[in-house]
Design a protein around this nucleic acid. Sequence first.
DNA 1: TCCCACACGTGATGC
DNA 2: TGCATCACGTGTGGG
Lengths: 240, 240
Amino acid sequence: MDNICDEHYWENMLHYSEEFDSWGLDEPFSTYYDSSSPDGTQSSSPASKNIVSERNRRKKLNERLFALRAVVPNISKMDKASIIKDAIDYIQELHDQERRIQSEISELESGNVKNNLVFDFDREMPALTRLKKKRVDHNYDSGSTRISPIEVLELRVSYMGEKTVVVSLTCSKRTDTMVKLCQVFESLKLRIITANITAFSGRLLKTVFVEADEEEKDHLRIKIENAIAALNDPESPMSI
Amino acid sequence: MDNICDEHYWENMLHYSEEFDSWGLDEPFSTYYDSSSPDGTQSSSPASKNIVSERNRRKKLNERLFALRAVVPNISKMDKASIIKDAIDYIQELHDQERRIQSEISELESGNVKNNLVFDFDREMPALTRLKKKRVDHNYDSGSTRISPIEVLELRVSYMGEKTVVVSLTCSKRTDTMVKLCQVFESLKLRIITANITAFSGRLLKTVFVEADEEEKDHLRIKIENAIAALNDPESPMSI
DNA sequence: TCCCACACGTGATGC
DNA sequence: TGCATCACGTGTGGG
């Protein structure tokens, strides 16, 4: 009967959006178990002192694991092992991407900086494409506005406390992308505290502070994803 | 007496340099425990079946953790929690690096395509983000780019509680101003919770949430002012 | 029914 | 000595 939580553990731990890092070497008490047993016996027990210590250790490890899951995109399974595995794959993927882009940079700045003013866009694309899956639509527009769906590069939905959920969305800066993003978030009828869009180095970064509880976090994320998908696909059954 | 290994565990696990990946969903037996107890009783035990299963699960998790440690450089402590934490930091570091390199690519790209005068957002970005040395070749730009120092219109540094200091900075939107602002805040090595830049009607508004105590507020303000001044003045004793 | 993934308490080991 | 980390066996709940 003392084995409550169990599965609620992960749901309860959803409060940790980012890692606070405040407890790297600080006091081992953030929301942690105090050294008081629920039966009244304080930490005077020689053996029960270890219990709470072990409990805190487990909790710490789970928090770390959850924080790791937070920084890795495209996490499907919530398995502990799967989380670590996805993190490994993601790091290697970033390594490859970095190497590729680095070589491309050196090629660009050494070779054809001066010569071809008509920039060959195709030569840069292999590095800029987000590798991975997701059919890469090749309708990049060179001047003329064409169908340019929202290409989401990253979507983070995290709870910051104080009934505030922060939505951080990064996508490629294409024609009308900013307008579409506004449409998406308007359609969701959220309690927006403040919103913001930043254009930076070919990307659009939208940050929205939404008034919501932590339980709505995942649901909100799915709603956003669906809204974007619906807007990208003109054939989908829009509900709005 | 059944608790052999323990510390030798990690040394024994050093055999895993890369990840095998062969057992993603395959048979749960690679070098794993078979379902035969050392005392002769096979897996017929109803409860002892769970024991070996749990053993394999733990072993798998440890292997994953070790593989994660393998792809992350600069691992000091072998702690399970520390390994995960280092991995998190490393991923975030890679994220920053990727963003920096991306902006550099767009810089090289914008050096070649400048004939199209699309929306003015594009013009904000032709920037250099030095990653090491390498002063960028001169701006053979179309005259509009000049030395344009950061013109600060307003700087507010206020404490919000919860160890959070909010920096709100408004300045004129000039060429490279956004990049310079990023450089300023990067050079300060702050514990940035979230940052944001908005371009609006000829102005740039940057909001940064910094993890800091209330006492550091004034000092932080001075640091920001100095960093901006140093970046505006090419004659200053610049480090980096 | 079993299987899977988990949290828990416990004893051991090292600093 | 206490304090940290760890592997282990066990019970539990969901699929």
